[in-house]
Nucleic acid binder design. Structure first.
Lengths: 144, 144
DNA sequence: TTGATTCTGCAACCAGGTTGCAGCGATTTT
DNA sequence: AAAATCGCTGCAACCTGGTTGCAGAATCAA
């Protein structure tokens, strides 16, 4: 069994466990998300998967979001970025981490090892999600 | 001197001190931002200031942003929200605070007294700004 | 095989954001 | 005061990311 096939099998299992039928296109999208070094936008995926239509990518991402296979990050670039949830069976707030958006090269970095600090909300507010993005310059851009 | 005039004079002084010429329209926009109970979108301002054109509002906000009279919040609603900087002469990261976006009524709340927790970035990353938004249900919507 | 259901691609649409341009008013210069 | 200059504003058009309607293709069940 080749490495690719192993991954594919894992992806399939993951989708099945979340009640998402693993079609060919969905596996492609999942794989592209897995390959990506950083969170990607719909446009990035369109670029990477030239054979797949924008609306299909969009609907696939929506589906993945609903089933907690991925989460979205609003980095302020105007387009939402997506990345696979990496917690094993869950994608809770506690699982979330910090992101960094470079205002120069417009790349978004994941700081996987930097969890979102816990916050105490005022009485009555219920937290469902969280979006914590730092903006500035990445090392490459700061150097110039 | 009426209350309104006093405020107007303050607004003018504020703009002058930041190198922004206080035109009639700009004072209107500034005033609308001041009145608003929470961060507002361009659409909100358009609604509030029916006589002023969308593009003028947009350019005014851009100008205010550049001159640190206001800051923007990406709450994930799709449209950026703006609010006056309330620190006296500055609008630094340290001055920023947490926001809460209600997924039901789509309002954005300011938690003025909850500063953004300090974070230690990896070597080489330079922080210019920060966006920390909690999503969930506000007390009113949670009740239903 | 047939019928029902889901998935996908295409094209069109929508909204927020942005820009080009011309007119207007304020300001400065002569 | 008239002329030249400059910035501010409104209008209309545009762009881009996101979203939807629809019809054909693929999948699944009987």
């Amino acid at each position: 069994m080749k490495k690719q096939e192993i991954f594919s099998a894992e992806a399939e299992a993951r989708m099945n466990s979340r009640g998402v039928k693993p079609t060919a296109v969905r596996l492609l999208v999942f794989s592209a998300l897995h390959m990506a070094a950083r969170p990607v936008s719909v446009a990035d995926l369109e670029e990477a998967l030239q054979t797949v239509d924008k609306s299909t990518i969009f609907r696939t991402l929506t589906l993945f979001l609903e089933h907690h296979l991925i989460h979205g990050i609003e980095d302020g670039s105007g387009s939402v970025k997506y990345e696979l949830c990496h917690g094993e069976w869950d994608c809770s707030v506690r699982d979330m981490h910090l992101h960094f958006f470079c205002e120069c090269c417009h790349r978004t970095f994941c700081f996987r090892d930097m969890p979102i600090p816990e916050v105490e909300l005022p009485e009555g507010f219920a937290m469902h999600g969280v979006n914590f993005v730092i903006k500035g310059l990445c090392p490459e851009c700061a150097d110039k």
